[in-house]
Design a protein around this nucleic acid. Structure first.
Lengths: 374, 374
DNA sequence: ATCAGTTGCCCAATCGTTTTGCTGCGACAA
DNA sequence: TTGTCGCAGCAAAACGATTGGGCAACTGAT
């Protein structure tokens, strides 16, 4: 079935030259002289036959496969995976490389086998991606091959990584609410002690403190990060005597629960209660009513950053052991309709953000900021 | 940086034999005799050195890369992509193959370039995946290489494809509602004329007719397949004089809008109105309250089926041109809490399905049925 | 006519495998 | 002693490319 593809030998025959010459002209090898006429003849033959080099053979010879592997822990269940893959793929393609994607299902043994498989295939480097931001321990096999982490950090020296800027995310969330005039805020945080949990809270607290909010103005509770958790937490918050006018949710799913609690309590969003989410899971944030203002995680950008770093490392001279760069990328605030001024300052004519506008957060303006070391 | 991997030559030296012998023992070539002692020595040397063959070289020699490509139109935005990839990957891995994933973004020119890149890399075959079920026209480049379609059909002969069984889905939806006792049904269908639109309606109608429902008992309207569309359509349906007691939605996002409309009209789900969705988008169906009973699309299974077909074709003798198999896979009904008996027969003690049970639909019981030709 | 320098192209080795012979050797029969 | 046979193993030719080193043929100067 597979019709054999055209080889360089056939092109050589067609053009009446040696394969050496064909290779020289097709690769524009400098220092090699070939007559313009011959050059034309070869090129012509190549297109006429529809020649495309066999990358396997090329790779074997050049010791460069122009192939990278992306190993993820859970490719299937989140839409985030796709964005990271896409980011990586876009830069790969711009360098004539292709990406092997494998998913480990969090099983160390599967991971081992799959990485081994990638190495046997002579990948030039590996992107190691986590679906939620966390610290990982790198499989030892990866020591011998250039590696970059996505959405994960590690303590091993020499390994670049990129993660979301959780602190900035927390700040941006606070900023959005403060800018709308809120002074009594709540944050429903994740119960799990992961970087996002610490970072977002730190950022949120910091920005609130900057604005002069006291301890009483800021309620922070934790919950399971699903609609049920958000519902329970919100009921408690909203029935308390110090009812917040705005709630920042660890993620969008949690916010769904908050919406339900608000509805049940007769609170309208955003008139009576403002809500900010996190993740910008399109189907959730854009699907609930009113649309959820939320903070996007920079999955695509992380994929791009990591892939670029990876190729840099691959192309770098082996002896040049520069320190591994790391980055925290800030995601944009996605403005929808869940934030308005608090009830006491509300003036219908002056809603702050138009629906569905996509813009960047906060006072520092500018495009998604990138903070990185070295 | 990349530490060169062990080659067969080194193993040969270590074991004191020729590379031929190493190859023979490591591949268990039949018809080749090698002394048990030597055999042991070679194997030992191989593991001691941590030898793993260079797949590039192997492929070059054997003309088989054990690599397949998956080209999708939109990898990033739906969680469905991940499931198809995972399905394909699982069977690939069981055959010692790996999957290249590329995403075309619906751009024909990008698609062409990416497929070309895959072919240069000597992939053994290609999976061509659509993110929503539709009929596609195959890029001509794919004529020369084994190809299987996922979630798409095509008229080209000799190309296997697999799609969801839309008709069965429509029937299952009707079955769920009829079994709960509903007799006045509505279906909010997609406005776009795609296979899912036709198939689901056909199935829904057919099952309703079987149950003896007349034209008046069945309202079918169309809408944009997003929450807004569902909202508008549901308002209209629920305010009409022939208010249905149950609504089947073309997809889960649409159902979100139906939920909102119901809430606004003071109708409780499922007591006053039952709802069935389609897609089982976890974050949506499991996130809204009450949990949405819905029909899952068999993305993972389609990935598996397609990959298996692909490998079969790859391994088949070239002359053996069997007719291309095609399949329509039925997805399971995912029972949650949005379906109950209609108001007039309601008996609180007898809710039909426990929450969150995962089971198969309807009267025909059994595991997800597979219908296929040949 | 000779020589040096340039031009234009090709030979052959190489990358790491698989695979098709072939060969050297001991055993056994004639 | 010679011939035959089975066993173990090896040499070498692929696979399809890249690349360092040569080698003719031509040019122009002497």
């Amino acid at each position: 079935m597979t019709q054999r593809r055209v080889t360089i030998k056939q092109v050589a025959a067609e053009a009446g030259v040696s394969i050496t010459t064909v290779s020289h002209v097709l690769n524009d090898v400098l220092g090699k002289r070939v007559h313009p006429d011959t050059r034309a003849r070869v090129k012509d033959a190549a297109v006429r036959l529809g020649y495309a080099p066999n990358v396997l053979a090329q790779s074997l010879r050049t010791q460069r496969s122009n192939t990278i592997g992306l190993v993820g822990d859970e490719i299937a269940t989140t839409p985030f995976a796709g964005k990271m893959i896409l980011g990586a793929q876009d830069v790969a393609l711009s360098r004539d490389a292709v990406v092997f994607v494998v998913s480990t299902g969090y099983q160390r043994e599967v991971e081992h086998r799959e990485i081994e498989e990638l190495l046997r295939r002579q990948v030039d480097g590996i992107l190691y991606a986590a679906m939620y931001h966390r610290e990982v321990e790198l499989p030892p096999q990866l020591a011998s091959v250039p590696t970059v982490l996505i959405n994960a950090s590690c303590t091993a020296p020499g390994v670049p990584w990129v993660v979301p800027d959780e602190v900035a995310g927390g700040q941006d969330a606070a900023e959005v609410l403060l800018a709308a005039g809120h002074r009594r805020l709540a944050f429903i945080n994740d119960v799990d002690e992961i970087p996002a949990m610490f970072g977002r809270e730190e950022g949120f607290r910091r920005r609130a403190a900057q604005a002069g909010l006291g301890a009483d103005d800021l309620q922070i509770v934790t919950a399971e990060t699903d609609p049920g958790g958000g519902y329970t937490a919100a009921r408690r918050l909203l029935q308390g005597d110090q009812r917040p006018t705005a709630i920042f949710c660890f993620n969008d799913r949690l916010a769904m629960g908050v919406y339900r609690a608000a509805t049940e309590l007769g609170l309208r969003i955003p008139q009576d209660l403002s809500v900010v989410g996190f993740d910008n899971q399109e189907f959730v944030a854009d699907g609930i009513f009113p649309g959820l203002t939320t903070i996007e995680l920079p999955h695509y950008d992380m994929g791009v950053w990591a892939a670029e770093q990876l190729f840099d490392r691959i192309e770098a001279e082996p002896q040049a052991t520069k320190p591994a760069p790391t980055a925290r990328l800030r995601g944009p605030v996605i403005y929808r309709d869940s934030v308005a001024p608090p009830p006491w300052v509300q003036d219908p004519g002056e809603r702050r953000e138009p629906s569905d506008r996509r813009a960047n957060a906060g006072s520092d303006g500018a495009a998604p900021t990138i903070h990185m070391n070295k």
